[in-house]
């Protein structure tokens, strides 16, 4: 509890200072008092507009994330156990991995139009990489004795994959999913900032143009909560699903 209070000290102090500064009247217009932001949030909740934008953003991020993560993990795990698959992906991934996928965004807009398809495509691409790499390494680094002992107990190659490699790689797979989730939100916001007429990124852009800073902060707040909430969900899922593998190794996971 004391630790919690101390941890909250800096953010709370900042918020109070911010509120006072905003109310003095000498602050520039973009410094909006936190209480004003909450009021706007309440108003937007009452008229339902916040749900509309949040819903659209969540939809884009989730669909993109789910598809990208599915294919990334699947390809990564297969490449980890099958040499020909590894040979196919390895050069492509290692050449393009450090390249910011976001640079493709304008091009993808010209290919697919500025609708949702383009946003899905870019999110899927961005999520594919970290999930692929994490599950590839997860599958590759499964301890040899585990595989041997499974073979010794009569498991077929498929059973070894399904019942040893996949569960053993799971902690790494989750690391990849976590990175992918963060990326999907970043790309979601960016692509909505560039071209959209609904969604939280759009809301920020529109608020910026009409100088409605209170709305901008509301959108920022929601985006922050989404990022935080999604990450927490992921961590809870990880802890629930991987009981045996997370025992005694929680500390280093900040």
């Amino acid at each position: 509890m004391i630790r919690f209070l101390r941890g909250a000290a800096v953010p709370v102090a900042l918020l109070i200072a911010w509120e006072i500064y905003a109310r003095t009247g000498i602050a520039p217009r973009y410094v909006v008092a936190p209480t004003e932001v909450v009021k706007t949030l309440w108003a937007m909740t009452l008229n339902g507009s916040i749900f509309k934008h949040t819903g659209r953003s969540i939809e884009r991020a989730t669909v993109g994330f789910a598809v990208g993560a599915f294919f990334g993990t699947l390809a990564g795990l297969t490449a980890g156990v099958l040499k020909p698959v590894e040979n196919f992906y390895d050069p492509i991934i290692s050449l393009t991995y450090p390249v910011p996928k976001i640079a493709l965004l304008p091009l993808i807009f010209t290919w697919f139009g500025i609708g949702d398809t383009a946003k899905f495509v870019i999110i899927i691409m961005a999520v594919f990489y970290p999930t692929f790499i994490a599950s590839f390494y997860g599958a590759k680094s499964v301890e040899r004795v585990l595989i041997w002992s499974a073979r010794n107990m009569g498991a077929s190659r498929w059973q070894v994959f399904r019942r040893v490699v996949v569960p053993a790689a799971m902690p790494q797979v989750f690391n990849g999913l976590r990175v992918g989730l963060a990326l999907s939100l970043i790309i979601m916001v960016t692509s909505e900032l560039i071209a959209a007429n609904e969604g939280l990124g759009y809301l920020i852009g529109a608020a910026q143009e009409s100088l409605r800073f209170d709305i901008m902060y509301v959108a920022l707040l929601i985006i922050g909560l989404l990022g935080f909430g999604a990450d927490r969900l992921m961590r809870i899922a990880r802890r629930k699903l991987l009981v045996g593998q997370t025992l005694g190794s929680e500390a280093g996971n900040g």
């Binding site: 301890e143 041997w148 107990m153 009569g154 498991a155 019942r163």
Partner: peptide
């Protein structure tokens, strides 16, 4: 499975309980 190997590193599956580990070969 006619030759049972015991490894120095135990080679237990960390994602399964003691009981789950012993059941594993039977599932196979």
């Amino acid at each position: 499975p006619d030759r049972g190997v015991i490894f120095q590193e135990y080679a237990l599956f960390p994602w399964r309980t003691a009981h789950g580990n012993v059941m594993w070969p039977l599932e196979i």
